[in-house]
Design a protein around this nucleic acid. Structure first.
Lengths: 394, 394
DNA sequence: CTGTTAGCGCATTCAT
DNA sequence: ATGAATGCGCTAACAG
């Protein structure tokens, strides 16, 4: 017994040591009188050392631990007096329930994992924003991780994410053919909703890239453009592929030859050389359709430098709107994605699958839902349209 | 005993029920032969029902629970054979350590709380991005919450955040005079680093708003501008106040009258009316200095609509660079903030305070560190400078 | 090298 | 209305 006492003491001492850095109040007990009451002297030492716990509040308010728990969880079956008393202690000690302990009891963790290529990308940060709103409405927090579109990183970060036992997952899969990810999805213990790109076995919230690209291309065709250059980077991405498909489909339908260049890399300089190359060919393009925001700005920039008149000499349509697209000279015609809706709807779909806290089982059909949000061709000037500069959205 | 058995059964059944949605494999035990071995029939049911645990892996690989733990944590003091055996079981079951349980043992949670006004704001999402990189380097995850610059929301979301016991906090305080937040900071069990705005008692990573605003204003003065209108929204924010101070200081030094309008709200339309008002006055401005990104674009837009020539009729300098600032006609001169550094340095500072996992106590001086990163006046054309269109950064 | 065990803080049951 | 006791999954301190 003495041995055990000794052990306990050592343990407490260590813990004390560890928490010292984090602790504001250090109720000393070095002066505890003798060893007769080591337990009494010890108890408060340990308990008050770190972050306050239920037990601390219980002791401070002179009630049982269960009572405090009841108070914290809504205060049912607690007499008004004790309620007050405990609440005061809670405030005084700055008690906050330890989420980890709650999780361990098996309930929801009230967190949603969000795995996206990059939070610095405005597309994804917008999604994250609206998804976060929805999460907040469900009293949940967002747990972020980035994949950089790198399947390996994606997987490892996914593992880290899952260790935190999120209730569900919002995912922008780097590739649909990722074997390991596929496996993970199949045996995922929590519902997964993908954004922007589909993944087999997952619910998904997408935009109709194909149709929008098709429409945009046909719009250029309608302006009499014959040689429409389609400029893109990262053709491995689902959205890019779909847009390429839409472009090709339209060109085919119009009986025009597809001009696709997916060799565009990051950086405007490359774009300029690249575009210059195309312009110098014996059959130069009379329009450019860019499939990505960075491509759009790069192309615009390059055309500016080359002193080409937009849209007279060469028309331009970009995929994805951006804040200043309407402020440029000429204002850019773009395909506008309902970005914020993507994040919001995805989060809503996820929480729908989670069900309403109680044991209600939501319809299994949700697990395969595929939501395709419509894009919109935002006509401004760069496509050749005569655009009044005073549109409502500028 | 029978009663207890009954209870246990019910409990398991409930848990089973709850986890049913999340479970892929449902090893049935409804056909378990008789009730003689209900416990045996029950054990595997529970254990294999939900997410696999250490015990599951232990059973599957025929070793003890501690051994599995050792394997998972680096595999020291484990024979090569058992190592293989356990690792196989881990993979087969798809075991992932339950983070909550680890937390409960008192260690680091490997999460950093990030409380920012809005993740959709490119400034903060960039910060978040680099902060996330740092976190990832420290094997940590970012836990996001938004405040919308609303002290009340900030506080409540802070509470939610803290329940997850992050190891530290990255905070963009909505206001330095928030009493409750002050109190929280004082007794926070974890280190806090603020970004973009200081807060008493916290380490902070800022940019030199005052000096930069002063410099920008003086630059306009140097171009011979006399009536420089300073346009801003949300003058309650620290950064805006500092920039206003810098502007005023410069104007005073130049012997010019300060023209400040902080009534700018969100939305370009308002800006136009507002600017029109100023232009119609008997002493119209010959330059505008905007203190915020949205103000800059709004002003630019308004000037475009009013057909005013920039910079001939009116010069423009904005605070905060943005992607297309160099692509506009004319290219905008702006104060460029080291946004990504802010996030990175703040995170680094936080982890420095956290110490290197072991018990090493980092210098207490870190807790009060105030890092002021230099802004840079990026001269383009809108200020009146003759700007070669082929600068390296365009 | 390996298994057994004691809590971490909490919600929950059961007994009062 | 209240308190004591249990166990969630895990790590760390032991005993073999």
């Amino acid at each position: 017994m003495t041995v055990k006492t000794e052990c306990v003491f050592i343990k407490k001492a260590r813990k004390q040591d560890v928490r010292e850095k984090q602790t504001r109040v250090q109720r000393m007990c070095a002066d505890s009188s003798g060893s007769a009451s080591w337990q009494q002297a010890n108890m408060p030492r340990l308990k008050s050392g770190g972050v306050p716990t239920l037990a601390d509040v219980a002791r401070a308010s002179g009630v049982g631990i269960a009572t405090v728990s009841r108070v914290v969880n809504g205060g049912v079956n607690v007499s008004p007096e004790t309620l007050k008393k405990v609440q005061r202690a809670v405030r005084r000690l700055g008690y906050l329930p330890n989420h980890a302990a709650r999780i361990l009891k098996g309930g929801r963790t009230k967190t949603i994992g969000l795995l996206i290529p990059s939070i610095a990308d405005s597309f994804f940060s917008s999604c994250a924003g609206t998804a976060g709103e929805v999460a907040q409405a469900h009293d949940s927090l967002l747990l972020f991780a980035e994949s950089n579109n790198d399947p390996a990183l994606e997987l490892s970060n996914l593992a880290v994410l899952m260790q935190h036992r999120p209730d569900g997952l919002l995912l922008v899969p780097s590739s649909a053919s990722n074997r390991a990810l596929r496996l993970f999805v199949q045996q995922s213990p929590v519902p997964i909703v993908t954004l922007d790109r589909p993944f087999p076995g997952c619910a998904a919230v997408l935009t109709n890239s194909f149709e929008a690209a098709r429409e945009a291309t046909l719009h250029l065709v309608g302006h009499g453009r014959k040689r429409i250059l389609c400029l893109a980077a990262e053709p491995s991405l689902y959205t890019i592929r779909e847009r390429l498909r839409g472009y090709s489909d339209a060109m085919l339908a119009a009986g025009l030859p597809s001009l696709i260049d997916t060799s565009l890399a990051i950086g405007a300089h490359n774009a300029e050389t690249l575009i210059q190359g195309h312009l110098g060919s014996r059959t130069p393009p009379d329009a450019i359709f860019t499939l990505k925001n960075s491509a759009t700005t790069a192309a615009y920039q390059a055309l500016q430098r080359l002193k080409l008149n937009i849209p007279r000499e060469i028309a331009l349509i970009g995929f994805d709107d951006f804040e200043l697209a309407g402020m440029l000279r000429p204002a850019l015609t773009v395909v506008q994605q309902p970005i914020e809706d993507v994040g919001r709807r995805a989060a809503e779909l996820l929480f729908a699958q989670l069900g309403s806290d109680d044991g209600s089982t939501p319809p299994a059909s949700l697990r395969r839902t595929r939501l395709v949000l419509p894009n919109r061709l935002l006509l401004r000037s760069s496509c050749g349209c005569r655009h009044s500069a005073r549109g409502p959205e500028e």
